[in-house]
Design a protein around this nucleic acid. Structure first.
Lengths: 131, 131
DNA sequence: CTACCAACCTACTGTGTCAATAGGTTTTTA
DNA sequence: TAAAAACCTATTGACACAGTAGGTTGGTAG
């Protein structure tokens, strides 16, 4: 299940795209328009900057701004960054690939097929498609 | 992310199908073969009986048994029963359909499309496909 | 008829994540 | 130099997950 981190991140991106004016947009405005706690958004937006989705500027006149064109943001990239992983099961989300049952597991192929489906779905959509 | 409830349920079903012999199969055997805590499986299997996936029999010679042919168990039904819902977001999982932003929401169509994809994927597979 | 086996039932617990909240510090510009 | 904004650290309450523990009921084999 997609959490508020992923969903709010998407809403922030959409809000930034819709209110784009060349300048930085303060989080206060976004929080008010989207009716989300500004304090909570700070945490989320910080990770978005760290993940290369946005650029931020401190000080008066500061705020946040998209750093690519909307069509260059795959939805999958945004969700993967915020949710950690889009994998359906723990043994595929883990980097170490270490499930001891992996060779005998009768369900693993299904999870792998499912993960590909999910990945392809979200990477075939971009921020532009949501506007 | 699919939890142990859904994954263990699937493994129990597969185990029952593979070891089918006309008789009831005690949970103890399943737990040993699958290397899962019997106590924890009790909770899971109880819900599977309540959900109409299995029949259980008490007393000596008792245990559990599939009550349909493997091809008549859609994987989606099993997962939906155990996970509560396969919906990607809270506003679609909720029965009351009450998100106040629903008309203006720019992401809802994507979640709906995604939910259909997931549903179709898991309902197109049956227990038979996992054997 | 009774001992055993197995399902069934209720309650509890430790761990971790989610969704925030609170309060401060630094940075920038008007 | 004062305001505005991002940035940083810490804390919290609620809840779900993944079990554990111990007892009760029910059916069957000897």
């Amino acid at each position: 299940m997609i959490s508020t981190r992923g969903r709010y991140a998407l809403r922030v991106m959409i809000d930034l795209a819709q209110n784009e004016n060349g300048k930085y947009i303060p989080l206060k405005d976004i929080a008010e328009r989207q009716d989300i706690s500004k304090k909570y958004l700070e945490i989320i937006v910080k990770d978005m900057v760290a993940g290369g989705l946005l650029t931020g500027a401190s000080g008066k006149g500061g705020g946040y701004k998209l750093c690519r064109k909307p069509e260059d943001y795959p939805v999958g990239e945004i969700l993967e960054l915020m949710e950690g992983s889009l994998s359906s099961v723990a043994c595929l989300a883990a980097k170490d690939n270490s499930c001891p049952r992996k060779n005998a597991c009768r369900t693993l192929p299904m999870w792998e097929e499912y993960d590909r489906l999910v990945h392809d779905f979200f990477y075939s959509k971009t921020l532009r498609d949501l506007l």
